[in-house]
Simulated scan of single mutants.
Amino acid sequence: MPYVRSRKFCCCLPVRFGVFCESILGLAVGGFFSVVAWIEINKFMHGQLQDLSQSDKTALWVVAATMTFAAVTSFLGLIGAIGRVRPLVAIYATVLTGVTVLDIIGGIYLIVQLFHGYGDDQVKKCQDQADKGAQGTVDVEHWACSEGFKVGRTILVVVYVIWWLIEIYGCVIAFGYVSQLNEEEEAKNSDREKNQSQNVTIVTQPAAAFGQPQPYPFSQSSNAYGPQGGQY
């Protein structure tokens, strides 16, 4: 097989190793959450969970389906990384990109809610609880509700941004390995065509004109015997 330079990430690690680790992590996380979600679905389908609302049930179905899909895709990526199977790695990279985009969209929506409607409601609930307590500490508890929520909201935003950067970098690693496999396939095809062209031997033989008699070999002067041919 012709040599193709291995692409790296984090300065020294090969992208194949990165896809291998990503797929194992996705298989573990997706498998865990999908199993938990399917267990909960089985419980409420058999009447064991009566206090779930319709939105909670819908959320369980969505989590179970998406996590199962993520686990299956990660398994395909793991096989592709181990066996250098380009189509499987390409599928894994594409799905990983789609999941990253959906995760970013969902995270942005959650952050907007934290800074507007949902966040204000949570602060108001906290302050209402403070009003029911001791009157001497109401102002302090109101301040704690407001400032505590702001700090928690900021931490959540930072965590989300870091996680998005990790996901985006994971997509870059996966597509980097796809590009490396493409280069290896192209180099292999080029080397195969080169070997085939070297093994082909072209044999040429002059063709006699149609209808033209060929000379008798012993009539030539070099093959003739006698005084004319110079041989005795």
Rank of each mutant, 00 (worst) to 15 (best):
M1P: 05
M1C: 03
M1Q: 06
Y3R: 13
V4N: 03
S6E: 12
R7I: 00
F9S: 04
C10L: 15
C12F: 08
P14Q: 04
P14G: 08
V15K: 15
R16Q: 13
V19W: 03
I24G: 07
G26I: 09
L27I: 06
A28N: 02
V29P: 00
V29M: 11
F33A: 04
W38A: 04
E40R: 15
I41C: 04
N42C: 11
K43G: 02
M45Q: 15
D51L: 12
L52C: 05
Q54C: 01
S55T: 12
D56L: 01
K57R: 15
A59P: 00
L60M: 08
L60I: 03
V63H: 05
V63Y: 03
T66W: 13
A70C: 10
V72R: 08
V72F: 12
T73L: 06
S74E: 05
S74Y: 04
F75E: 01
L76G: 06
G80F: 05
I82D: 01
I82G: 00
G83M: 11
G83W: 10
R86T: 02
R86K: 14
R86Y: 00
P87F: 10
V89N: 09
T97I: 06
V99L: 15
T100K: 08
V101R: 08
L102P: 01
D103K: 12
D103C: 07
G106C: 10
G107M: 03
Y109F: 03
L110T: 08
V112E: 01
Q113R: 14
G117I: 03
D120V: 07
D120H: 11
D121Q: 14
D121H: 09
D121M: 07
D121K: 15
Q122S: 12
V123E: 06
K124S: 12
K124M: 07
Q129E: 13
Q129P: 00
A130S: 10
A130L: 08
D131W: 09
A134E: 13
T137V: 04
V138E: 01
V138I: 08
D139S: 05
E141H: 05
E141S: 02
H142G: 01
H142D: 00
W143L: 07
W143D: 02
S146P: 00
E147S: 13
K150D: 03
V151P: 01
V157H: 00
V158P: 00
I166A: 12
V172S: 04
I173V: 15
A174N: 11
A174H: 06
V178P: 04
S179K: 14
L181I: 09
N182Y: 05
E184H: 07
E184G: 05
E185G: 03
E186T: 12
A187I: 04
N189M: 11
D191E: 14
D191C: 05
D191W: 10
R192P: 00
R192M: 08
E193S: 10
E193W: 09
Q196A: 13
V200E: 11
I202K: 14
I202S: 11
V203C: 11
T204H: 12
Q205C: 02
P206A: 08
P206F: 04
A207Y: 07
A208R: 14
Q212D: 02
P217R: 13
F218K: 13
S219P: 00
Q220I: 00
Q220S: 13
S221Y: 08
S221H: 11
S222C: 02
S222Y: 08
N223T: 06
Y225I: 12
P227Y: 12
P227E: 10
Q228C: 10
G230A: 08
Q231P: 03
Y232Q: 13
Y232D: 07
